[in-house]
Write a protein that binds this DNA or RNA. Structure first.
Length: 431
RNA sequence: GUGGGCGUAGCUCAAUUAGGUUAGAGCGUCUGGUUGUGGCCCAGAAGGCUGGGGGUUCAAGUCCCCUCGCUCACCCCA
């Protein structure tokens, strides 16, 4: 690493040309799965009014409390780089009156999200998510479709050994009862809990259940389970969802410790994790949030969605041994051997490109050896050679680089001759 | 926010036992080996204030301190 010069900010990543094919693959695969389910693309601003996340993501969450990139802009307004996609999409739904559209409104996005956190494997301060939200329909069939969208995308990308965990958090009516049960259960053991959990006991008892610290986990082993406190309607919702997932052949594991970190979830929550679920395990997760829209000051609007980290998807593709394709090479390299050839090289390259041929042009006169080495290194399949001889004769040499015969063609025959050379071995008769 | 590991060319790494002259190699890049022909091979060149600062010493890439960065884990999550 060079010590001098500017470096990228901590926790960010450069995406180099070699990375592009893998990213394109994720984008296109996801877009195709979305299209198949009639999800439409949406994109929202990279920064929003801070209030959106305070109210939407929830002020008790770790994200809002410690991880937001928040600053006052020059006009004195507090804005925040989005730490997740869902509140923005719900905001956009409200702002554009999407309630007049057929419901549910099904949207998807691919965008960067920002969280100020200490970087480590699979965790960046700026990362990218694919995500989808279905707004305006409370049916468990929508939950199933949203989960199916993520699941199918991951399958299509070749990550086939993941596990889907699901749970139900019930509804706001049943939440206080469950919360009270948790507090009742944990309070006698408060002295055995970690400092964070002592805090959670009063702040956010739900999160007591998923603390990974050994001592806390031991205490919570017999803790009340949310499913036992869920109301009848939520219970049926959960059962239907599980039945539909079964019908889709999506294996799911009920996980009573799964509560998710965001405040707004109700009923369905889910997470997709690798088999050896290590440190930064979660590839994607989401759930239902029927009361989020109201928290943002709008009318009641049921919704369900997910977010999934592209970097983590890619990590998992590598884990299962998938090779990424290299960036595609140019098809043709046009080599100027003399200064007089530059003009011809430039126009010929333009002609080829108009014909849809991926063309790299040499920018300065150099020896044929030098140019051909370059053409070979670039991976071109055909080299066009323009030297003094060609310029004077009004012709161009077409040289296949995979072993065909080099031919000499008139300027106005360059495009078809090149196409022929790209299609197969050139013979003298083609000239 | 709390801990651990690591910082030498663009990349991967060398630099003998407790410090010893102008810090090397492979890959990659460029040029040449052919006064107009690639791959393989050969030769040459460019490319480093050894992350930065301070200290110890006759002498520091090497030892000490500080700092910055990278990285892994905790935490949190995608």
């Amino acid at each position: 690493m060079p010590s001098s010069g500017l470096r990228r900010p901590r926790g960010t990543a450069d995406r180099l040309p070699a990375d592009a094919p893998a990213w394109e693959d994720v984008r296109q695969t996801f877009a195709r799965e979305c299209r198949l389910r009639n999800f439409q693309p949406i994109s929202t601003p990279t920064f929003e009014t801070t209030e959106l996340f305070d109210k939407g993501t929830g002020s008790t969450t770790d994200i809002v409390q410690n991880e937001m990139y928040t600053f006052d802009d020059r006009g004195g307004d507090s804005v925040t780089l989005r730490p997740e996609g869902t509140p923005s999409v719900v905001r956009a739904y409200q702002q554009h009156g999407m309630h007049v559209l057929p419901q549910p409104v099904k949207l998807y996005y691919v965008l960067p999200v920002f969280r100020y956190d200490r970087p480590q494997a699979g965790r960046l301060r700026e990362h990218h998510q694919i995500g989808a939200e279905a707004l305006g329909d409370p049916s468990p069939a929508v939950d199933a479709e949203v989960i199916d969208l993520l699941w199918s995308t991951l399958q299509a990308l070749g990550v086939t050994d993941l596990a889907l965990h699901v749970n139900s958090l019930g509804d706001p009516e049943s939440r206080p009862e469950y919360r009270a049960a948790l507090v009742d259960f944990f309070t006698p053991h408060a002295d055995k809990l970690c400092a964070d959990c002592q805090m959670r006991l009063t702040q956010n008892p739900l999160r007591l259940v998923d603390c990974k610290k050994r001592t806390c986990a031991r205490v919570s082993a017999d803790a009340p389970r949310s499913l036992d406190y869920v109301g009848d309607a939520a219970r049926r919702h959960f059962d239907t969802l599980r039945d539909l997932l079964g019908a889709l052949d999506i294996p799911c594991t009920p996980d009573h410790r799964l509560v998710r970190g965001l405040d707004y979830y109700n009923r369905t929550v889910f997470e997709i994790v690798p088999p050896d679920s290590g440190a930064q395990g979660t590839v994607g997760g989401g759930g239902r949030y029927d009361y989020l829209a109201e928290a943002l000051g709008g009318p009641h609007l049921p919704g369900v969605g997910f977010g999934s980290g592209i970097e983590r998807i890619l990590l998992n593709r590598r884990r299962v041994g998938l090779e990424e394709a290299p960036p595609p090479p140019p098809e043709v390299y046009v080599a100027p051997l003399a200064d007089e050839a530059l003009r011809v090289v430039t126009t010929v390259a333009a002609d080829l490109r108009r014909a849809g041929i991926v063309t790299e042009a040499g920018y300065a006169a150099a020896s044929p050896r030098s140019h051909l080495r370059r053409a070979n290194a670039a991976g071109a399949r055909v080299a066009l050679i323009v030297g003094r001889r060609e310029v004077e004769a009004g012709r161009i040499s077409v040289k296949p680089l995979d072993g065909g015969d080099q031919v000499d063609v008139a300027l106005d025959a360059v495009v078809p001759s090149t196409q022929a050379a790209l299609a197969g071995p050139v013979t003298a008769s083609d000239a």
